[in-house]
Every structure is written in structure tokens, then in C-alpha cells.
């Protein structure tokens, strides 16, 4: 699982999905049936997380942002098509559920856990796709994620947000191309386009919380997945091949100063407002420590 190009080449006689499944069997010894079973659980957990976060009983315990996703879903449509609007809203709803310590699927990480389920669940609802096909989409997305992890990184602390929300956008874009019966090489172009468009995005969580800018970044990544897949499905090609874009992303990530890799010392975290919020959180923490003694 080290090269998108290699997968695309092998997929000429089968499909991107089949090749990822086969390669993963060779790597782990798990049968394709076991793998599909594993992803079935992932898929239904994603849907369950969203369903519970949308229910009236859901209590947000996010500290900085509350209710954005639901509010957005209830607002009138303006520029976005129905499926994109829904995906963006769902991505934020799951992002907030994650911030509220609810059960989610880290995909590829907890911080970026809203993007792929947001896109895929909205897609299924709007286009009426079967669960089996959606699970294929998850396998394709994970194959792309594994290549990004192997050639570059999937961690904000190592490579910035391009490695989390950026990777999630590329993974979701790959799944959308597969679901629309795009060719394996279209998958590779969608991945390349998504990652080029988010190259260099820093990780700068305010007060270290996975809320600002993270929740809205999931919304952005969801919309980027639709943009990249639709460009690729229309036949537009990326001049730079996906593997090279991934390598470039890894290099850029390594060059990012530590302040911009999850330390909450740069980017929006270091703005006057960001600092004020961080100070407030420190006061809350100190109060907790004072009151945490039960004897």
C-alpha cells in the first residue's frame, strides 16, 4: 500500500476496490470477507454516531462552538447543491460530537472524523446507494489513506492539518469517484487535486481543543471532496501524479515549524482571541484541580 500509481496499474483489469482488498490481504493475512466485515462495522458506527448527534437528546459538551452543524442543516439552501450542503452540515455535526466526547470513528483521525462520514452518508441519502457499495467506498478511501500514511503522514502533529483534514478530503474524493463508477485513474486525479488544493494547511487548534478551527475544517474538507471528485469525473487530469503530490505534502509537513503542528502556539491559536480563550481554559483547569479533591 505504498503507491497510488501501483494500485491504478493493477486495477486496469479489475477495480481500485479489488486491488486495495487484495493488497491488504497480502499485508495482513486477513481474508477479503473479514476485511469487508470490519468495514461494515465502521460504516454502521459512522451512521450511528451521526444519528445520535442529530437526535434531540444529544447534549453538546463542546466548549467553544455549539450547534453549528444542525443550524446549518436547518438553514435555507443558497449556493451549495443539496448533497454538498448536507455533507457539510453532517461533517460539522460529527465534528461537534467528537468534541463532546461521543463515540466516533477516527477516520483517519478523530479531529478529521467528520469529513468522510459526512460526505458518504449524505451521498447515500441523496443518491440512494446500497450499504455494500458504500462499504466499498470506505475501503477505497482507506487504501488512499494508507498510501498517504506510508509516504507522508496522517498526523497533524507531524504534518499539519493537510495531513488530517486534507487526507480526509482526498479519501472522500476517492470514494465518490468509485461510487460514480469513475475509472481508477480518475481516482488518482481526484486524490491529487484534493491534496494540491490543501497543500500546506497548518494545524492550529485554539487552546489545543479539537473545535476551532477543526469543526469547520471538516466542513471545508467535505466540500473539497465534491469539488475534486467532480473535476476528476469530468475528465480533468492533475498534471502532477498523486504519489508525487503526496510526497510533496509530506515534505511540506516536515518543513512546518513546530508552532504550526498541533502545539497551539501558531496560526489562529496565536491570535489575540485565540490566546484569550486559552487563558480562560487554563483558569477553568486550575479551578478543576482545586475542586477535584474528593477527600
Amino acid at each position: 500500500m505504498n503507491s497510488i500509481e501501483e494500485i491504478v496499474k493493477e486495477a486496469e483489469s479489475s477495480s481500485f476496490f479489488d486491488v486495495v482488498l487484495k493488497k491488504n490481504s497480502e499485508l495482513t493475512g486477513k481474508t477479503p470477507d473479514d476485511t469487508v466485515e470490519f468495514f461494515k462495522k465502521i460504516w454502521f458506527t459512522m451512521k450511528d454516531s451521526l444519528r445520535r448527534a442529530l437526535s434531540p437528546e444529544f447534549k453538546s459538551s463542546a466548549i467553544l462552538v455549539k450547534g453549528d452543524g444542525k443550524r446549518f442543516l436547518g438553514s435555507e439552501g443558497l449556493f451549495l447543491s443539496p448533497v454538498v450542503k448536507k455533507a457539510v452540515g453532517y461533517a460539522m455535526v460529527i465534528g461537534e460530537a467528537n468534541a463532546s466526547m461521543c463515540r466516533i470513528v477516527a477516520f483517519p483521525t478523530a479531529g478529521a472524523s467528520g469529513t468522510v462520514p459526512g460526505v458518504l452518508i449524505a451521498y447515500q441519502e441523496e443518491f440512494g446507494e446500497r450499504d455494500e457499495r458504500m462499504i466499498e467506498g470506505l475501503v477505497v478511501a482507506s487504501g488512499v489513506g494508507a498510501v498517504i500514511g506510508n509516504r507522508a503522514t496522517l498526523s497533524g502533529a507531524e504534518g499539519g492539518c493537510q495531513a488530517e483534514c486534507g487526507a480526509a478530503a482526498a479519501m472522500a474524493a476517492a470514494a465518490l469517484v468509485h461510487l460514480n463508477n469513475g475509472s481508477p485513474s480518475m481516482i488518482q486525479h481526484a486524490v491529487a487535486i484534493a491534496l494540491k488544493n490543501i497543500m500546506g494547511l497548518v494545524c492550529d487548534p485554539v487552546a489545543g481543543l479539537v473545535e476551532v478551527p477543526c469543526i469547520k475544517r471538516n466542513a471545508m474538507a467535505a466540500s473539497l471532496a465534491f469539488l475534486s471528485s467532480e473535476l476528476a469525473l469530468s475528465g480533468i487530469k492533475s498534471v502532477i501524479p498523486a504519489d508525487e503530490v503526496i510526497d510533496a505534502m509530506g515534505n511540506v509537513g516536515r518543513k512546518l515549524p513546530e508552532e504550526l503542528r498541533e502545539t497551539a502556539l501558531g496560526g489562529v491559536a496565536a491570535t489575540p482571541t485565540g490566546r484569550r480563550i486559552a487563558k480562560k481554559l487554563t483558569r477553568m483547569r486550575n479551578k478543576f484541580l482545586k475542586n477535584s479533591k474528593s477527600d
Binding site: 470490519f38 500514511g149 479539537v210
Partner: peptide
């Protein structure tokens, strides 16, 4: 890294 490493864990937020 294989695809099981990418998908999951199923866990409570906000950070693994």
C-alpha cells in the same frame, strides 16, 4: 500501514 490502521479506532472523541 494497512487499511485497518487508517479506519478507526472506534473511540470517544476528541483525540485518540
Amino acid at each position: 500501514m494497512n487499511i485497518f490502521d487508517v479506519a478507526g479506532p472506534i473511540t470517544l472523541g476528541p483525540s485518540s
